[in-house]
Amino acid sequence: MIQGISIYEILTVTTVLFFIGVYGFLTRKNLISMLISVELILNASVVNFVVINKYLYPDMLQGAVYAIFIIAVAAAETALAISIIINLYRQINSVEVKDTEVMKH
């Protein structure tokens, strides 16, 4: 609970953060940038979990636990994604989305 700041302000910030992530994911051509955008989305939801837990059910910890859970998963996912991207880079010398189309064939 932070004095002077209601849940609405914080939720507004996380929403903005979420949609920045979505926007980034849809428009970035670079796989790394897209990965960063996905991180933004995840972080927005992590903040939401924590905030909603704190403001609505202060006696409980599930939100916080979930946040940690997401951070852990996100770390693993990032590691995996980065490794894929590096592998891809070794193959096609590019991290551009449009160049990954070769994988279709």
Binding site: L26, M34, E101, K104
Partner: peptide, 12 residues
């Protein structure tokens, strides 16, 4: 199309 971003856009 096979492009992730197109799918994501459709999804969103």
């Amino acid at each position: 199309s096979g492009k992730v971003q197109d799918y994501a856009f459709a999804f969103i």
